[in-house]
Amino acid sequence: MTETTPAPTPAPERVVLAIDTATDICIGLASGDTVLAVRREGDRRAHVEHLTALIAEALAEAGLAMADVTDIVVGMGPGPFTGLRVGIATAETLAWAGRTPVHGVCSLDVVAYEHAEAAQPTEDFVVAADARRKELYWALYAPDGTRIGQPHVSAPEALPAAVVIGPGADLYPAVNRGQRSEGPRAIDPGLLARVGLDLPDAGDQPLYLRRPDAVAPTSRKSTLVSHKRLSIGRL
């Protein structure tokens, strides 16, 4: 206690804001291993209405402002497109406005992380989410929660023969042979904020997995047999 060397300045605390709208609206705020606030909203038709208000609520609960956020984690899907884009557009714009780095992750990965930590599974498992149209979004994971390959979209019958968990696990009798599996059924926003920066980078494009519904028109319907060639702008 004789010397008065100044204590080294502590590294500025990192505050992570996590946003995921692939299923519910999920918002988490964490600093290190401490979850500061979480919000979840299950109304899947009102993503655009609620998302920013819920972020503001979470920040207020943590006593923080957007300027205090040092990192943003965003779920890039897969998930229904319109809701998914609300989360990504919000995250990317917040990141741009605050010059904050943004880290895109596969939304299914955080569910796998939780399951691997909590249940210590011994075999590969699948995380699935509702893709509507009688299909599931899904990805296969090793027992330690590492994703094996890219996420997919397919009919429930086409899933690998493995235990299926996640938000889409209980939608179809073909999954888990109709038995209920043990494991998380939702994205944990607090966990996403805590560990999101360590999850694999999913890139900066949404994981749509499907092409847009659009059909090029076939030639104009007509009862006529022959069509003369048409020309435009001849002088």
């Binding site: 655009v48 998302l51 920013t52 972020i55 503001a56 957007m66 884009r85 609300v86 557009a89 919000t90 995250a91 714009t93 917040l94 406005a97 605050g98």
Partner: peptide, 11 residues
């Protein structure tokens, strides 16, 4: 709208 709301919050 998402982008506008994000800016409204951030700024």
């Amino acid at each position: 709208i998402s982008a506008a709301k994000a800016l409204s919050l951030a700024w």
